[in-house]
Design a protein around this nucleic acid. Structure first.
Lengths: 223, 223
DNA sequence: TAGATTGTTAATCGATTAACAATC
DNA sequence: TAGATTGTTAATCGATTAACAATC
């Protein structure tokens, strides 16, 4: 049985998946040990941040050698749910929903999609990898019988809240929202927003600031 | 001409897209004014945070009324690139790439996809909405002639770095990375990672912590 | 006018970085 | 052993919250 853990600070939780990806890379390359300095360099952080982050994990390093890659991967996986299977369902069998259903990375990290659903009768019955698209009326039965924890919302924004309500009513514990609307959920349900549009907007901002900065440099140089 | 702006602090930049979504909602509902209190309530923030965030924008509110919805939307859009068209190309015409190409939300926020590319000859020529999938050899020509600023990487992780290098060489200023590997790019190019897997891992963490907490409560109650 | 709400300054809180004793 | 690296404490930095004068 695992020790009850505290909720990790947001910044730490956002970094851990990056460590995990990198550490898996190292493992593939056959490396057995990695130091905080090496991790910091690879991810663009300081050694201090890395050591503080690792201190949240169930892991101790070794002086002069660093962290054992195998144990570090295990500890990160433990914190990020890769050490248990988490069953999910996808609602919305459009391109995005199907893309996720067929995306191998999720399966490799402990997520198992046990059903994909759509309200469109023309889409129901279609084959998506190993899964057959099911009608919404089957949602409750599947979520309950398979003890599904996570609902992935891959429907248009206009339908997202309704789908969320329905998933929650079926008993899922968390939602991944791929629509870009704000979901209202009762306490006790976790929501994480994917926000691809927001990422594009961040990019647009960063590009504009950089451009302004360059314009300014040119301008100053001319003055 | 716009005043050169500072790069916004990360936390602020992550919140702005949420304000924009909500403000557009309000506009649709016909509301003309919104106070910091209302915004805070809708997005789960404090009034103070909202006012500090708005202070980064090119906008002033009005005592006793709040912010004019129309102006707030414009100011947010300005900061997030919705006031200019940003042209992008998508590399990878799999389900994910096609999903983005057909996703109306991006177009509504000032992003215009001017090309979708794939290295697979069987996929080249396929129709995706208004676009025809092009071969990779056309990438440079399109990026240059259409002055494309953003490259969207929707290929498998194993090909992502190579695609990134190629896009940069063609002259894009920013990359949206949908693969879950860390891209190495030269200074002067912006990268934003979409990290859908990381979001699922955050969710798994949150669910586990909550479950542990409940177990602990039950355990304490029994003791 | 009185009350509500802004913009901004000051206080608090939390995250990052630096420093260093312990240790392999 | 000497040197490198951890784990942790202290210092710094930045973000959030609180407070309040200005104002409509």
């Amino acid at each position: 049985m695992s020790t009850p853990r505290k909720r990790l600070p947001g910044p730490v939780l956002r970094r851990l998946p990056r460590y995990l990806t990198h550490v898996r890379e190292l493992k593939k390359e056959g490396l057995e040990w990695v130091s905080s300095q090496e991790l910091a360099h690879a991810l663009g952080l300081t050694m201090s941040t890395v050591r503080q982050d690792v201190s949240h994990l169930d892991l101790t390093g070794v002086s002069k050698r660093g962290y054992e890659v195998k144990r570090l991967e295990a500890a990160l996986g433990q914190e990020l749910g890769a050490s248990t299977v988490h069953r999910d369902v996808i609602v919305g069998a459009g391109l995005l929903g199907c893309a996720l259903a067929l995306h191998g990375d999720l399966a490799e990290s402990g997520f198992e999609t046990v059903g994909i659903f759509d309200s469109d009768p023309d889409v129901v019955g279609k084959q998506v990898g190993d899964l057959t698209v099911r009608p919404m009326k089957d949602l409750r039965r599947i979520v309950r019988s398979r003890r599904v924890e996570i609902g992935i919302i891959a429907v248009p924004g206009s339908a997202a809240q309704e789908v969320a309500d329905r998933l929650i009513e079926c008993g899922v514990k968390g939602l991944l929202n791929l629509a870009h609307i704000h979901l209202r959920v009762p306490r006790g349900v976790e929501v994480v927003e994917a926000r691809i549009l927001a990422r594009m907007q961040q990019l647009a901002h960063a590009i504009r600031v950089r451009k302004d900065y360059q314009d300014e440099r040119i301008w100053s140089a001319e003055t």
